[in-house]
Nucleic acid binder design. Structure first.
Lengths: 340, 340
DNA sequence: CGAGTGCTCCAAAGCGCTTTGGCTGATTTG
DNA sequence: CAAATCAGCCAAAGCGCTTTGGAGCACTCG
């Protein structure tokens, strides 16, 4: 069933039918109703390729997926996707994942924009002075960044959580509990979120006249194993920390294992706070000792990004609005006063 | 730069240019070279919407993503995606995720097929007599199933791992070690993979004259928490098992925690084997006691599915070929003889 | 009463590509 | 040597939709 057939059986022109369906004003309400009715009854659905060809719009949002033998997609991605999908579903938006060589995402961005495959894109895991943002910005396609960059000479729309504030609060709590030697097990410190977390932590320490030594900061890919290694290195080094901030629950698993292996206890010997993106399959309250966290649902962020993307596509949102969500600090059993 | 412009500057017809570019034979080699050259030099790229409209092909593969407030996307998905992306990237294939209400995926399948949005689709997590397969099969779009269904009156192409064999082997090992009371912590038993695993396990037990009681089998969503609960229920019940098979590493985390909470040890009091899909961020060898596993890389499966999908699209693969991959049984410290 | 004003609706021109059905001029073939 | 064949190219017809530029037809108003 296509437009031609439909309009023919209604004895109307394709123009009128098209307009009726797309809510244009120059068609009478009665006609519109008739058309809508017939369309529904015959299950008419406009062919998206044709529409795209005519309008240039696709009803899809894009994401360039860095891939490669050595590249692992972040497990956070799937939760973000859940949220995105939640919103997208109710608006008949599809998501196009364009796999790209992790070393050369630019070509892919150019391609999907040139091809008009998608109406908008979102970017994630931005770095300071991220070239992708500059590219996408000049390419002129609507976009939203999940996270923030830094040191760019233009503004852009983003959604981020207050990573700095979160780790500031967490560190402040620990210093208030008397901890003097803190350490940070962070994610990849080329990404802005990690930089912000470190910054927040340093600021809190500075307020108590403390500092964070170079050796008290680890920056690694967020795996259980890396959490374990980092924790061992920290604890077995001189100046062993009495409290650790950790950038992910998965790494926290490794920290907990390391602490156990070393015969220490949480929170007796070590206080631990980790960031929780709220996974359904791994929850901080179920850690051997319930884990204190800075919490922010990455899933909700996904839904919000989709919502804003949709708004930008339809012209409802414009400009470079940045949105920063506060992060909850949730205290559980894994923190205590500094050991004496 | 579009076809018209390009053909004009070459003083050729659009027909000829199009044919030259698409490798049709009715164009001389010299002309072809000239055209190819000019196309590359001017960075000509055919507009995919136009091409799609004309050919009906899109260069994209589709996946219907079940979503909903209560629906969590399986974290395995992201690893599968890594593999899929790896292959897709090198073949300029994009992946379209169409979010669907988890209770009504059919509408979405119909939509994406009717719309010709994608050239092929893949389905995952099939159930016995899965209606989606029947639907997709009659819809006539190329597809591949990751996993298998059962009880369907037609054949279909799939890629699966030997779940039954894997759990058969694992269970056999345990019985050989003298275990008499085994238990299974399985995934959702409405999905075929879970059924196969249980079947394999029962078969192995039967061979030793043992059986698996109803109460020795748990079927739950694969989260850490559910693993913990299931383990506690099993161990604290009467007829506590001396060995547990577990369908995922994430649940195994919970099992380990439960065992600890109860003051027991692995493998002294309980032997544990889990299925490992090979996540980069959680590895069985890094469990407190290195975990024995049945191992199969879900990432490789993703790549293979993409490869076969591409083959089907271009007509290189036909028919209902099923492919079943063997699963490695990897013995580590978490199994031992049955306690006396 | 004639011009102006809305309101509906339509024919036709794209959007950029592929593909069908020729049309040429050169080469073979009986 | 006329007829058949063939390689190489082209014009034009779609694919199914949106959108431009009117057209027709009441009505209103000075």
């Amino acid at each position: 069933m296509n437009l031609k057939q439909l309009s023919h059986m209604l004895s109307l022109s394709q123009t009128t039918v098209s307009r009726a369906l797309n809510g244009y004003p120059e068609v009478s309400e009665e006609t519109r109703r008739r058309v809508m009715d017939a369309a529904k009854r015959h299950g008419y659905r406009p062919n998206p390729s044709a529409r795209r060809l005519a309008t240039g719009k696709s009803g899809m949002i894009g994401y360039v997926l860095p891939t490669g033998a050595a590249v692992d997609i972040d497990p956070h991605f799937v939760e973000f996707l859940s949220g995105l999908g939640d919103y997208a579903r109710s608006h008949e938006l599809d998501l196009v994942l364009s796999p790209a060589d992790a070393d050369d995402e630019e070509t892919t961005y150019r391609r999907i924009v040139a091809n008009r495959q998608v109406d908008a894109v979102y970017l994630s895991a931005p770095r300071p002075a991220d070239r992708r943002l500059a590219l996408v910005n000049t390419l002129g396609i609507p976009f939203i960044v999940h996270g923030r960059s830094e040191g760019l000479d233009f503004d852009y729309p983003y959604l981020d959580i207050d990573n700095e504030g979160a780790f500031h609060e967490a560190a402040r709590l620990l210093t208030q509990l008397g901890h003097k030697r803190l350490a940070l097990i962070n994610g990849n410190d080329r990404e802005t979120f990690a930089i912000h977390r470190e910054r927040g932590m340093r600021r809190a320490l500075a307020a108590s006249g403390l500092t964070l030594g170079e050796r008290q900061v680890c920056s690694v890919t967020m795996t259980e194993e890396n959490g374990y290694r980092a924790a061992r290195r920290l604890i077995e080094g001189d100046e062993a920390p009495t409290a650790i901030l950790c950038s992910s629950l998965i790494m926290a698993l490794g920290v907990v294992r390391a602490v156990r292996d070393l015969g220490l206890t949480i929170p007796g010997d070590l206080s631990l706070v980790a960031h929780d993106d709220v996974f359904p399959w791994l929850r901080p309250e179920n850690f051997p000792v319930p884990l204190s966290t800075t919490r922010s649902s990455i899933r909700l962020a996904g839904a919000r990004v989709a919502e804003r993307l949709a708004a930008r596509i339809s012209g409802l949102e414009e400009g470079a609005r940045g949105e920063v969500w506060p992060v909850d600090l949730v205290i559980r059993g894994s923190v205590a006063g500094a050991p004496v």
